[in-house]
Nucleic acid binder design. Structure first.
Lengths: 198, 198
DNA sequence: CTATATACGGAGGGGTCCTCCGTTTATCAA
DNA sequence: TTGATAAACGGAGGACCCCTCCGTATATAG
């Protein structure tokens, strides 16, 4: 069976196509920046100077374009995990990465919807999803191995928690709140002293 | 200055108005049930057999109608707090209430958007918001007083966390995940053994 | 029974999403 | 260079949704 993915020589990608794709991403980035996460796709197309049809051909869904815009940010975030692991004990690295996560959301609000899509409903999809999951998994595994946190902590759970904490990033005070919650969560993750109560 | 709010005798509420209001709520409930949280308001009006204008007069915003639909549920949830406090130690009561919260979301998905609105952006508003906050505050205060959890836990934080955990209630497995996270959170809330690490 | 404050309904303006298809154009082979 | 042709473009159009506005209908008070 000869896959097509094996040899990527499936014709050249037309030059104008690639150019438009870039333009769309740039336009989207700008549009998101100054009109919030709900800009109409039509406006993005307008800004990019292409037809709406072109936009849809390149990015069949809204999330697709959001992801494209924030792919870089997401990758940086993911890579930060590795960096943190090199300079700190695993538990702290995990803790710090979570704080960083909050920072990212605070800075680039739109990214939230992308990450939300990763966790909620739309089946952890696409490159970005895998990267974030990967980063979190790494951090958790290390921290667990070193005994900084429980051995049974599930990376996906924690990711959900993070995304959850940053949900509602419109209300004032969400950020400190999220940071406090992260601290609590980390405390809860420390290796069991037997669970009192229930 | 004679206020109108002081004496609520501001004329009778017309009978048909009240009838239509009921119809709208029922229709909305049904519509939510079998078309998800995003039914168009027009459809709700249609089902209720009233004009769209009438719907908007009664419920100026989408959240308003969602809240109306789930006012009862929300109250029950809030009241459950009191009940739990009567039969269990405060810490357990809090823990159990959080689990109950997840159950509610699981059962009536739409309620999530109402609660989301309470916590996110739209400034804890309206009756329901106050009730939930109230319940959570009560539980937290009791648990703190009895030493079951830290004294500095903030009810609103925890509510945010809860709503966050239930965010993404579309992806498979969200529920067990939320429950695990609640357990972790509770562990993290136990009175400080000095915070190791960071 | 009448007057009138209330409530009703839905047309209509303004948007958004997404599809579909006739037109344009980059690429490649001759 | 010069077609031929697959790929890409663009935007009109259908479907839907939100929300407002205002002429019409009616419940209630006197």
């Amino acid at each position: 069976m000869s896959f097509e993915g094996a040899a990527p020589a499936a014709r050249k990608p037309r030059a104008d196509a690639e150019r438009n794709r870039e333009r769309l991403i740039d336009a989207a980035k700008a549009a998101f920046a100054d009109k919030g996460p709900d800009v109409s796709l039509e406006e993005i197309a307008r800004r990019a100077g292409v037809g709406i049809g072109t936009l849809y051909r390149h990015f069949p869904t809204r999330d697709a374009i959001v992801e494209a815009v924030y792919r870089r940010e997401v990758r940086q975030l993911a890579e930060a995990a590795t960096r943190l692991l090199e300079t700190r004990p695993p538990g702290e690295a995990l803790h710090e990465w979570m704080r960083l996560f909050v920072d990212y959301i605070a800075t680039k609000k739109v990214i939230a919807s992308a990450l939300g899509a990763i966790v909620g409903g739309a089946e952890l999809y696409a490159a970005s999803g895998a990267q974030i999951i990967g980063a979190m998994s790494l951090l958790v595994r290390r921290a667990a191995d070193s005994g900084d946190i429980r051995a049974d902590a599930d990376p996906e759970d924690l990711l959900r928690a993070l995304v959850g904490f940053t949900y509602g990033n419109a209300s004032p005070g969400w950020q400190p709140s999220a940071l406090r919650l992260i601290d609590i969560l980390m405390d809860g993750l420390r290796p069991a002293r037997r669970s009192a109560g229930s």
